[in-house]
Simulated assay, not measured.
Amino acid sequence: MDMGEARDRGLVLLGCGKMGSAMLSGWLDGGLPAQSVWVIDPYPSDWLKGRGVHLNEKMPSDPAIVLIAVKPQMMAEALPQISEYGGGRTLFVSVAAGTTIDSYERILGKAAPVVRAMPNTPAAIGRGITAITGNARTDERHMALAEALLSAVGQVVRLEGEHQMDAVTAVSGSGPAYVFHLIEALAAAGEAEGLPADLALRLSRATVAGAGALAEAAEEDPGQLRVNVTSPGGTTAAALDILMDERRGFPALLKDAVHAAAERGRELGK
């Protein structure tokens, strides 16, 4: 199974909100013909209407892939539309948060290959990272195809199994919100030190974005990058004495925050 098969047999996108739109844009830019894509969405955007895809039309009889990108609360209504494809020839890839593989197997059947994926919001600008795991019916061809599809919006990593998905959700899925809050808090701290609010926000946004890009591009690990910019007895060291405090600094705070997110994910998945 490869993208050629998706071109020939068709790809169904169930739900086309922000994440679905980002992926569709990546596929089309990558050369997948619009006429090979069927999109089912009750409230299509103007952008989607202009893509040339089959929009809310009769679906193909034997699609290579169905990608599920509907909101969890819409799942019960949406899944019966694709249950006929559960015989084993169609790969199902889900980017819907919180819905377990077992939930899909109950509706699609045990013969259906299912890949569950957890992307994050930087996918909207092609800078996401997505973790994937498959059920017992997936093989290397299925996993490679899922990687190819999801790489349209950023990096892709494979998990050992679905048991790691709640931790991934807590780190990379929810993680962008932690970074956005860091920008907010850093700007507020700058304002408290006498900077105008707009300047403090501009400095904070650019600093966090630039440091993240440097961390991704540099050969050194983040710990070494931190050491590189920390002169003994200097201003950065004074701040890090507080931020790296074992009781009230980043390490303890983030460990508690990520644990709380993971635990909530486990509760919602029951």
Rank of each mutant, 00 (worst) to 15 (best):
residue 1 M to I: 01
residue 2 D to H: 04
residue 7 R to I: 08
residue 10 G to H: 00
residue 19 M to S: 00
residue 22 A to G: 01
residue 26 G to K: 00
residue 31 G to S: 07
residue 32 L to A: 04
residue 33 P to Y: 10
residue 39 V to K: 01
residue 41 D to L: 05
residue 42 P to V: 06
residue 43 Y to W: 08
residue 44 P to H: 02
residue 48 L to G: 03
residue 56 N to Q: 03
residue 60 P to F: 12
residue 64 A to D: 03
residue 65 I to A: 06
residue 70 V to D: 00
residue 71 K to R: 13
residue 71 K to H: 11
residue 73 Q to V: 05
residue 74 M to C: 10
residue 80 P to D: 14
residue 82 I to H: 01
residue 83 S to N: 14
residue 83 S to G: 13
residue 89 R to Y: 13
residue 97 A to N: 02
residue 98 G to K: 03
residue 103 S to L: 06
residue 105 E to M: 07
residue 105 E to F: 02
residue 108 L to A: 07
residue 115 V to R: 00
residue 126 G to P: 07
residue 133 T to S: 12
residue 138 T to I: 01
residue 143 M to L: 15
residue 144 A to E: 14
residue 148 A to L: 12
residue 150 L to P: 04
residue 151 S to E: 14
residue 152 A to L: 01
residue 152 A to H: 01
residue 153 V to N: 00
residue 158 R to Q: 10
residue 158 R to K: 13
residue 162 E to A: 04
residue 163 H to Y: 12
residue 168 V to T: 02
residue 171 V to F: 02
residue 173 G to W: 04
residue 179 V to L: 15
residue 179 V to G: 13
residue 182 L to H: 09
residue 183 I to Q: 11
residue 183 I to Y: 10
residue 184 E to C: 06
residue 186 L to G: 05
residue 186 L to D: 02
residue 192 A to F: 11
residue 192 A to L: 10
residue 193 E to V: 08
residue 195 L to H: 12
residue 197 A to P: 07
residue 206 A to D: 15
residue 208 V to P: 04
residue 209 A to N: 15
residue 210 G to P: 07
residue 212 G to R: 00
residue 214 L to H: 11
residue 215 A to K: 09
residue 218 A to H: 12
residue 225 L to V: 08
residue 228 N to W: 10
residue 238 A to I: 03
residue 240 L to Q: 10
residue 243 L to T: 10
residue 248 R to I: 01
residue 251 P to A: 07
residue 253 L to P: 03
residue 255 K to I: 08
residue 256 D to H: 15
residue 256 D to V: 13
residue 258 V to R: 08
residue 259 H to A: 15
residue 262 A to H: 04
residue 264 R to L: 05
residue 266 R to H: 09
residue 270 K to T: 11
residue 270 K to D: 14
